[in-house]
């Protein structure tokens, strides 16, 4: 494009906005305000007094900054425990998912043996079956193992690897065969080819898949809701729901709790937005 001199004036024109572009920009900005409003409202409200919450007309800025809203969260629910549970379960789930997916994706894309197609068809068919269908027998299975209200009961049924495996496969496929062959000639065994050649060459893909898995596990709601009855094993989303039921219309406390729950995701979002967007477009194209 840059080779064609005719295109140059276009580039210069891009700097200045015409009336139509201004119109588009203003409309998009109004839309963006609507999208952001709930977050701004949540952050400000987390510091409001109860009187501010009930004020009419609505009060934007807290009349005094109530840090005790946050301490109140810890008094009402065992928030740290929920946080801890969420971190433990989503980290273990993510690690298992990614390691298992890396093994499978490497095996399928880089090793030669018969019966791969059969396995792939088997794995793909698992994507057709949504969690609602499997959750009842899985609940009964977990219950019969005595795993209700345990980390194992929360974690293992949520380790689904089909999706991440397919995602990683598409990247592993693009690692040149020569690279693998030359590593083998240098005396690398199958395992060292994986750790020294395949994984380092697919870092981007692996981190995208990890992020994708982690966020999915962090917000997971239905399964932990089903298998936990005791407070000690509730994860953050379930804990927030119970906080809402207990703190009826103490919205400033609810907002403080939500803000703390959103924080890790917000940090991930700010630093890894590009990868998140990529993971969505990839899943959109591939699945």
């Amino acid at each position: 494009m840059s080779k064609n001199p005719d295109i140059q004036p276009m580039r210069i024109r891009r700097k200045r906005l015409n009336g139509y572009q201004w119109y588009v920009f203003v409309m998009l900005t109004i839309g963006a305000v609507f999208m952001l409003f709930p977050f701004v409202w949540m952050i400000l409200s987390a510091f409001k007094t109860k009187a501010d919450v009930y004020a009419y007309p609505p009060r934007w800025i807290p009349s005094s900054w109530q840090w005790q809203n946050f301490t109140k969260v810890f008094e009402m629910i065992p928030f740290w425990r929920y946080y801890f549970n969420s971190i433990v379960t989503s980290v273990i789930e993510t690690v298992l998912q990614i390691v298992i997916s890396i093994f499978a994706a490497y095996s399928i894309t880089k090793l030669r043996y018969p019966g791969k197609k059969l396995f792939l068809a088997f794995m793909r068919s698992s994507l057709f079956v949504p969690m609602v269908v499997t959750m009842i027998p899985m609940y009964l299975l977990v219950a019969s193992l005595g795993w209700l209200d345990t980390y194992a009961g929360i974690i293992f049924p949520q380790v689904t690897t089909a999706f991440t495996t397919l995602l990683l496969m598409s990247y592993f496929d693009s690692i040149p065969k020569d690279l693998v062959d030359s590593a083998k000639l240098d005396g690398c065994g199958y395992f060292r080819v994986l750790t020294r050649v395949v994984v380092p060459n697919a870092k981007g893909a692996i981190s995208t898949a990890t992020l994708f898995s982690f966020l999915g596990n962090w917000k997971s709601y239905t399964w932990p809701l089903i298998v936990t009855t005791k407070t000690e094993y509730r994860t953050l989303p379930i804990g927030l729901k119970y906080l809402m039921q207990e703190s009826s219309s103490e919205y400033q406390v609810m907002m403080a709790a939500s803000l703390m729950a959103i924080l890790p995701v917000l940090i991930i979002f700010i630093f890894c937005e590009k990868q998140l967007v990529r993971s969505i477009t990839l899943t959109g194209m591939k699945s």
Partner: peptide, 10 residues
């Protein structure tokens, strides 16, 4: 990106 439960509360 924001978890469903937290945004539902808002």
């Amino acid at each position: 990106v924001v978890p469903m439960v937290a945004s539902s509360l808002i």
